[in-house]
Design a protein around this nucleic acid. Sequence first.
RNA 1: GGGAUCGUAGUUCAGUUGGUUAGAACGCCGGCCUGUCAAGCCGGAGGUCGAGGGUUCGAGUCCCUUCGGUCCCGCCA
Length: 584
Amino acid sequence: MLKRTHTCGELRKENTNESVNLNGWVNTVRLHGQVIFIDLRDRYGKTQIIFNSDDYSGDFEAVKKLSMEDVLSIKGTVQARGENAVNPNMSTGEIEVIVETMELLSETAPLPFVITDRESALEDLRLKYRYLELRTDELQHNIIIRHKSYQAVRSYLSEKNFLEVETPILMKSTPEGARDFLVPSRLHHGKFYALPQSPQIYKQILMISGFDRYFQIVKCFRDEDFRADRQPEFTQIDIEMSFVDEEDIYSNMEGMTQHVFKEVIGTDLPDPFPRITYDEAMSKYGSDKPDTRYTLYLQDVKQFTDMSDFNAFKSAECVKAIVVPGGVKYSRKMIDELTDVVKTFKAKGLAWMKMDAGHLTGGISKFFEDNLQKEIKNATGMDDGDIIFLIGDERSVTEKSLGALRVEIAKREDLTDKNNFKPLWVTDFPMFEMDEETDKLTFLHHPFTSPTTQDVNELDSDPESLKARAYDLTLNGYEIAGGSIRIHSPEIQNKVFSLLGLSPEEVKEKFGFLVEALTYGAPPHGGIAFGFDRLVMLLTGSNNIRDVIAFPKTTSALSLMDGSPDSVSEKQLDELNIQIKKKK
RNA sequence: GGGAUCGUAGUUCAGUUGGUUAGAACGCCGGCCUGUCAAGCCGGAGGUCGAGGGUUCGAGUCCCUUCGGUCCCGCCA
């Protein structure tokens, strides 16, 4: 092998007449009889190399057989391209390399799909041959963005005195939020480790140990169902700080996020980040992770629908509406499609009216007399050419379904500029919510989150009305981080466990070590965890988390490349004393 | 757990109300070609229509089951 003197993205006009060696993959072959053009590619770029039968000393017939993705090592001379031959689309487009000798380092088998075009194959095939898909410009770029993001996070936090500490991957299963991935123990019959859903308890214990600023870029595991932005294993930037309140978290994390965006993609984020309470987010956007790149606010119109002759909304707890400017263009078919969207969120239907020459027309407009129409126009700011969509239902159904409609309309109206970044803190989350299935109190964040009160009696009296000292950081409709100020008093922690329905025995068994640790001088502390994959996804402009993970799993948690999960041998099962039951 | 949608050549797709020998483009193989950069031109090979079952004289097309992909609801602090 002729070791490379340059990469395939490096040579310029200034290198003319230099003798160079290049190593890389054949990107394309253009065969013209006695002259052959090949774009040689590596991670750094592409360079056109030329085999000319007059000059090339080796076997020209062998060169004719080269095909895409063969791996070559060549020696040649850099030559400036003629004026008409310059390719302005390539960074190396002003030069080409006349090949003198070539060694075929590796011949490729016929390809399952064309690598230059990610669209050329369906995703399952691309995932099976992920190593080939990773050769595409887009994924190479994404992996580089991800690398830069790690570095930007580490350098910022390290500079601010945060210590990176590793925590165990094999840990105790605790009844927190998601289902655990379990790992059987060979040495301890019938016992299991769990993979961490997050290093939550360890990082709190690190605070008790005095490491007052901790971070870790760490894999977390949750055995739930997956989506475009959720994988079974994912990466968090896990952070915890002692002697802090919410404001310390906000300012440090704003600084880190601004630094990452500036370093990685050169974007300036707002300073400071705006904030909204959970209640206001739900009321105004119908979401706890509002996309604030566009308005389309939810507006309360119950007072008007109550005065109309439209009876379906009279008994509804909450009637809200979205006005879409220019929405008269919406056809019956489009409205039907939007109705399907809101129905998946349990809305019974989608009411609408269009405004033309100051009057409401179509949809449910006949139930609204003239004066009422004027009032609606004034209150909502609706104008000629607009459409108003209305939903009446229980508050949560109305808000969630209109929130989803708002996102769908923004997508259709192209209001979501990928290069426009709108971070937003969501604050004042409820401490608990009622689980409708079990009729038990459950936490919104996690059970270590501090309530806004330190009064045990207040906790007892009306837990559902309590707020938590929890916060999420959202960006363009994605939750990119979430955290809280933690409980550092063993009494409050025990109280919260008992409100969640855990018996003292269960608490002792599952969380005893944490509660005990809290008794030995626990500093007030709090923290946050960033969904690193989602953050990188936004930095790359993708809307698919698989695009920023080198070896992702499918939405059914399969790895199509290596075929995991898979069955194991009887011997392995025997060692673990595990027997596979028949399903059902 | 539920819903929607997709699966036809190596790949991306077309394939009408169920009806002759399942087509196109790219890729692959062979030939021609000294300035291309999505090179071009000529020729060729290539199909378990995801799998299994059913209805029918006849199924890529209709029905059932099943496997897999994607998106969503529930779920995921």
